[in-house]
Simulated scan of single mutants.
Amino acid sequence: MITKTGRDPRTIARNIPGVLNAIFPGLTPGIVAFYNKSASDCAVVAVPLEAVQSSELQKSFLFELAFAVGEQLILDNNPTWGESVAIATKRQSKFFDAISPSQISDNDQRIALRVAKNLVAMVKQVAAGENSVYGVSPKIPGFRWIASGSGDFFAGSTLIEVKCIAGNFSAADYRQVAIYWLLSYAAAVETGDSEWKSCALMNPRTGKLVSIDFDEFIQLTGGGRSKSEILQAFSAIVTNIQSF
């Protein structure tokens, strides 16, 4: 057996799906479709596909830029485009080589700002529904060789994850929030702190929002196991995996 430390939970969920598939065997295409059909439309202005196609930026960077602007607006900051570009470049560089553009066209500024404003409105909507405070970068605890990380936003006990995609949320998106819940539950068992109770998958590009109650999610995807049994199975898998 091999040991490996410091792996990001997002990377595990997206690049090593077998780990989560073994823990949540019920996370099937049918369940993904079930949750996607439950998506609500938020009262925001969706960004048309043709506007996105007209962008002079790489699409991943365009939406990383929008996320950076939205995050700063939620923090009540008033960032310049140069500052937002630097934030977006730094964030993308965690996962792959990112090239910072020399300039942002007026059209790309309009698109990024629209998505950013949608993001802020949707986060505030979730917080209002929970009657709770909201914020950025909630901590995701580590576990054994899995490194700690951070989510996108939170509202009370609801984790908020943002995906600026053209279509529906994918199985990888659901695996990602599943491992975030699982890591929070593992930490809660150890420390007595609270776990994430629910999650909102949010697409500020289209205005779609999927609300997930984690107790229901576990019943649907956990293969009939209790939360403690799921944690035991996860612990056993993590113990036996040493590298990938």
Rank of each mutant, 00 (worst) to 15 (best):
F169R: 01
L73M: 10
R114C: 12
M1P: 14
C164M: 12
V45W: 10
A116Y: 01
R144S: 15
I237Q: 05
T158H: 10
A46F: 08
G207D: 12
N107S: 14
Q125P: 05
L27F: 08
V45R: 13
S60M: 06
V136L: 04
A172K: 09
T11L: 13
P48S: 10
V120I: 04
L57E: 11
N131H: 13
M1G: 15
A127G: 12
V162E: 14
A188R: 05
V133T: 15
R144H: 08
A33R: 12
I179G: 07
L119E: 14
N240L: 11
R14S: 11
A68D: 06
T80E: 05
A68V: 02
A51M: 13
A172C: 00
P9W: 01
N203H: 11
Q72H: 01
G192A: 11
V189W: 11
F169H: 08
A13K: 04
P25T: 09
S150H: 09
A112D: 06
S105I: 04
V238Y: 09
A200T: 00
S40G: 14
L73I: 03
A22E: 12
C199Q: 03
V123C: 06
A127M: 03
G135I: 01
S243Q: 07
Q92V: 10
I111E: 14
D8H: 14
F154S: 05
V177T: 02
S150V: 02
I99V: 13
